[in-house]
């Protein structure tokens, strides 16, 4: 297991390298002079100042040296300063992470609460109207764009019924009841699509397990059907389900860019979106890098978790 873990971490290095190179090149490929984008127009008129700034930012160096200097700073958590607020980018980003994590956790929990029972029922009652209904619902669920679902929810629950606020955020530590009101719509929008995926996943991994021999053995030993399903099949079926839901987190974090924007949710997704609109390049660069690193690390953790849950899988 230790060797496998080390191996997996080593595999992560080229991925992270590609990620940093792409993000670094993004900055280089922007139109215009980097000095202009970094400093703003007023201060960079004078050629002497420009030369000084070029030297200060290391822009007179060859590109691989610039990359090395940049990556060194990134390792120290220095992503530069925001062009809009003039505050360190790392500060802006780390302030926005809790809101995203909060939304993601509530959304995923919501989806598991809906999807696992629905998927199990569909698998147990396979090829019955119940199963077809669950299958059709989940297929429609994965076909609905999350932003449209979000808009329709806002239209119905905020604009027509006036039950819930259409956007905004409140920390649960400030006013719990009020913060739940702000949370419901975004969490539902994050959760519904996830729920559709997980339902399909639960159903198919339950079916895979049901065909295995140990199930027949358990039945022939006279265990009740309930016990066979809940104690044996569901438990084993959960292993791939949890793994793939974990990998879905990458998609979910990508989706937060859209959903956080719609609901004015102050997370990392909205921060990146606003940075793109405001042309705040250091913030875009750092935001995408941080989101990418989160996804890669979560993938690694999920993979390791899978091995822990399922020791039968060969470690290669």
């Amino acid at each position: 297991m230790l060797i496998y873990t080390i191996n997996r971490i080593l595999h992560m290095i080229p991925v992270l390298f590609v990620l940093t190179v792409v993000v670094f090149l993004f900055m280089q490929m922007l139109p215009g002079d980097v000095i202009d984008t970094l400093i703003g127009d007023e201060e960079a008129e004078d050629p002497e100042t420009r030369a000084l700034l070029m030297k200060e930012y290391g822009l007179d160096q060859p590109i691989y040296v610039q990359y090395g200097v940049w990556i060194g700073k990134v390792f120290q958590g220095d992503f530069g300063k925001s062009l809009i607020t003039r505050r360190p980018v790392s500060l802006e980003l780390f302030e926005s992470i809790p809101a995203t994590v909060y939304l993601a956790i509530v959304g995923i929990s919501l989806s598991i609460l809906i999807a696992v029972p629905l998927g199990s029922i569909a698998a147990v009652k396979r090829n019955t109207p119940t199963d077809y209904a669950a299958q059709v619902t989940s297929l429609i669920g994965i076909s609905i764009p999350e932003f449209w679902f979000a808009i329709m929810c806002v239209l119905l629950f905020s604009l027509y019924l006036g039950w819930l606020p259409s956007s905004g955020y409140m920390s649960p530590f400030e006013d719990f009841g009020q913060s739940i009101k702000y949370l419901i719509l975004p969490a539902a929008a994050v959760g519904f699509r996830q729920a559709a995926y997980t339902t399909r996943l639960t159903r198919s991994s339950m079916l895979d397990e049901m065909n295995k021999e140990y199930v027949d053995t358990a039945r022939s030993l006279g265990f009740s059907e309930k016990k066979v399903i809940y104690k044996y099949i569901l438990r084993n079926a959960m292993i791939p389900t949890i793994t793939i839901s974990g990998l879905q987190l990458a998609n979910l974090l990508g989706g937060t860019v859209v959903l956080e924007t719609i609901f004015a949710w102050p997370g990392i997704g909205q921060a990146i979106y606003l940075a793109i609109i405001d042309r705040d390049y250091p913030l875009i660069q750092a935001g995408i890098l941080v989101l990418g690193i989160i996804v890669v690390v979560v993938n690694l953790l999920v993979d390791l978790l899978y091995r822990v849950l399922n020791p039968r899988v060969a470690l290669n």
Binding site: V22, P31, G254, V257, I272, R279, I284, G292, N299
Partner: peptide, 27 residues
Amino acid sequence: MRVVDGLLAFPGILLYLLLVTLAREWH
């Protein structure tokens, strides 16, 4: 396959965001 694995692990949506931002900046 090393390259493919690396690309598969790369979160796609971020690539779209970067490229689309670049396209916007280059008008």
